[in-house]
Design a protein around this nucleic acid. Sequence first.
DNA 1: GATGAAATAGCATTTGC
DNA 2: GCAAATGCTATTTCATC
Lengths: 164, 164
Amino acid sequence: MAVALDEIDVRLLKELQTDADRPNVELARIVGLSPAATLNRVRRMKEAGVIRHITARLDSATAGFALQVYLLVTLARHDDAAERRFAAEVASLDHVISADSVAGEIDAILMLVAHDVAELHVTLSRLSTRGGASRLVTLLRLAELKPSSPLPLRATSVHSRRSA
Amino acid sequence: MAVALDEIDVRLLKELQTDADRPNVELARIVGLSPAATLNRVRRMKEAGVIRHITARLDSATAGFALQVYLLVTLARHDDAAERRFAAEVASLDHVISADSVAGEIDAILMLVAHDVAELHVTLSRLSTRGGASRLVTLLRLAELKPSSPLPLRATSVHSRRSA
DNA sequence: GATGAAATAGCATTTGC
DNA sequence: GCAAATGCTATTTCATC
């Protein structure tokens, strides 16, 4: 599932995770390759799935969402049908902007946004009723401690095997 | 803090949050404006801070991180010095890829990645010792229930006031 | 198998309206 | 916000290492 990356790939990925909003020629200068070679590497990494997509990251507050909330969810039941039902409900709720299932003290962790408490309330209710959540712990996001940061990538050291 | 957005802005932001990896002329066609006008709107939204940045989103697993973990953190102390110390530790740990302080049953929620358990262990230890965390609840990410989705933006209805 | 250089087609960006 | 024009860029091609 993992993909081999050399030092140049790692450098490219680091740059693209930080700021993908610049010309390919600039990336090429940074990594010391020609624009064509740079373009090829980036295209390959997209095809390989290392780069999932390139997107704009918005500031939720500036976009009008006064409330940003993490939700720790415990499901009432854990059979396949219940889990599918929950996933479907999560998918249908616009205010849930991401969700992961997890192993640990809870079953899933969700990120939601809302303009006000009433809007939040509607989403929470839906998750309890239609979603089948038995316990919802709401964590109000107060501040960003560390912004979304690049992955600490390492080059796949194929050549170091020679000395091993 | 919030910014006024009309229907075209909302449409542009929705498209850019889904896929920012396409030419401005295509966006222009989608929203029915000229390329110049489209470019101006996007630039203004960047300056206004609605668009924080444009980045590549990687697939952690494909990039080699077998473990992706949410961490629920309770701090031992809550004075300013302790919080600054924790923030500094979080900032210095490469494997912590994002962190927010929250209000609720815990103090902060972190997202971490690791190649293996040993690597995870190191980061957890640092958060306990130097970071001053008194309780760490580890939630292992099993699956993505809902991918990072566009914000459910609404146009700021300035004109509807005429009928109000 | 990947890179570099050159060439073409296309786009970003500016200016005047 | 539009249309036209300029300059630069993305993208392909092909020879090369």
